[in-house]
Nucleic acid binder design. Structure first.
Length: 441
DNA sequence: TCTGGGGTCCTAGGACCC
DNA sequence: TCTGGGGTCCTAGGACCC
């Protein structure tokens, strides 16, 4: 029996959110495009033209708005309904190329591949060709540009993806003739798992490059850094430490939160936002077949708020549940406890949210012997979910969330005050009948 | 004079990712 | 006026118990 060399391919969508926006607006393909975070806070995606103009990643929109206007940059609020749908289409294409596709994030996936190490030259040529073929297939099927890189470990594939950027968008890094030279010149902060803090320390340790990190002593890494960075170093040497996830890991917590359009002080308005987040979280639990037993509500004035106040309060339910009424009631009951300031002054809250934990598969929720179980409404919940799938999430809501009109306004980034700012929202072209693109001939 | 040792659980905070 | 949201993992330190 032949020992196969296991390899991993990374498929990375280029400027994914911008590519999604340009898909339905072909006239944008040659123009600079940026996509903003929720609440139109800062830049989270830039296409090549916008990068060439020097628009920085993470730049606060209010600071660069005038410059973007002057440069003719097309600006979009983020539209996750659209991005998630297009991401799923890309994944379906990738499934043609490997039985194991690990969807790492909305715009990246790892594929399990293998090679016959007895014929490295032949195999390298085959994999180089395969990388290009994957790239072209995704483009043909979805019109989303991707980069494809193949290596022995995820960390090496991530590094290779940077290289592919300048080499036609596809590369087989396994056995690549320039590999050592590339790693010796790659700054360590470009390596997956090395942020700016560790990069700074590593530079003092004479390990300012990928090759330098790989060469550090194991016990030194363990003692002066941590096991996570040790794993990264091993991966750079070709030792796989981050296995391919064939199933997404079980969710341990679920957070829903948003900044408000404007700072709030009224607990009643904050409770509306908390109610909406709890209801949405309950819906997500049901979608994934999960239930939660710990509900936490939190509010914050943000880093720049005065007086600063971060309030949180949590409640443990007698049994895990995914019932909207039960979770909304529990979350709203915590609002007063978390908005009450400890010191003087009236905090102006900028953000509120709900965090669920104690997550277990629904139906296997176990309570204590003498606890009164949470009152649930499974048939009603199922009906609510069905209506939401068919007519949209705003069609039917729990009163505590606000009215359907109010929620539609929240989606569109208009009033009420506790909603989001989304002034540059594109239509949900692919998931809503009423927002389909119209072709005029 | 002088204050154990080991275990668990929880929380906060740090570091990173997209 | 104005700086996102949603995650994971690891570690240190405190509380508590025997």
């Amino acid at each position: 029996m032949t020992e196969r060399r296991r390899l991993v391919a990374l498929v990375d969508c280029e400027a994914f959110y911008c590519s999604c926006e340009a898909l339905f607006r072909p006239e944008l393909r040659e123009r600079p495009v940026v996509v903003l975070s929720n609440n139109d806070g800062c830049v989270i995606s830039r296409n090549g033209e916008a990068k060439a103009l020097g628009v920085p990643m993470g730049a606060p929109y209010f600071k660069i708005r005038d410059q973007l206007d002057a440069d003719g940059v097309a600006v979009f609020s983020s539209n996750y309904a659209l991005y998630h749908d297009l991401s799923a289409r890309v994944l379906r294409v990738l499934e043609r190329f490997s039985p194991h596709v690990d969807a790492y994030s909305i715009d990246e996936a790892f594929l399990d591949l293998d090679a016959d190490p007895r014929h490295p030259e032949v195999e390298r040529a085959r994999l180089d060709h395969l990388a290009h073929e994957i790239r072209q297939s995704v483009w043909a099927a979805t019109r989303i540009p991707v980069r494809v890189s193949i290596a022995e470990t995820k960390t090496l594939a991530k590094a290779a993806s940077e290289v592919a950027r300048h080499r036609g968008g596809a590369i087989c890094f396994w056995g690549h003739p320039e590999r050592d030279a590339i790693l010796a010149s790659m700054p360590v902060e470009r390596i997956w798992g090395v942020g700016h803090r560790w990069a700074k320390r590593l530079t003092f340790d004479d390990a300012a490059t990928a090759a330098g990190l790989a060469a550090l002593d194991d016990s030194h890494l363990r003692r002066h850094y941590n096991v996570v960075l040790l794993r990264t170093a091993l991966e750079l040497r070709g030792v796989s430490c981050v296995p391919l996830d064939q199933a997404p890991p079980a969710r341990r917590s679920l957070v829903r939160s948003r900044m408000f359009r404007e700072p709030l002080t009224d607990p009643a308005l904050i409770a509306r936002a908390i109610g909406m987040h709890a209801a949405r979280a309950a819906e997500m639990l049901r979608h994934d077949g999960l239930a939660a037993s710990v509900v936490e509500a939190f509010v914050t004035t943000g880093r720049h708020g005065t007086p600063a106040h971060h309030g949180r309060a949590l409640a443990e339910l007698p049994t895990a549940t995914n019932d909207t009424f039960a979770l909304v009631r529990a979350a709203r009951s915590l609002v007063d406890a978390c908005v009450t300031p400890r010191g003087g002054g009236q905090p102006r809250f900028k953000k509120a949210g709900v965090m669920l934990s104690g997550i277990v598969p629904a139906g296997r929720a176990q309570g204590h012997l003498f606890d009164v179980p949470v009152r649930e409404h499974p048939a009603l919940m199922e009906a609510v979910d069905r209506i939401a799938r068919r007519f949209g999430r705003e069609a039917v809501v729990v009163a505590a969330q606000g009215s359907p009109d109010e929620l539609r306004a929240v989606h569109a980034g208009q009033s009420p005050a506790w909603g989001m700012k989304r002034e540059h929202l594109s239509p949900r072209y692919t998931t809503r009948w009423d927002e389909l693109p119209v072709v005029r001939v």
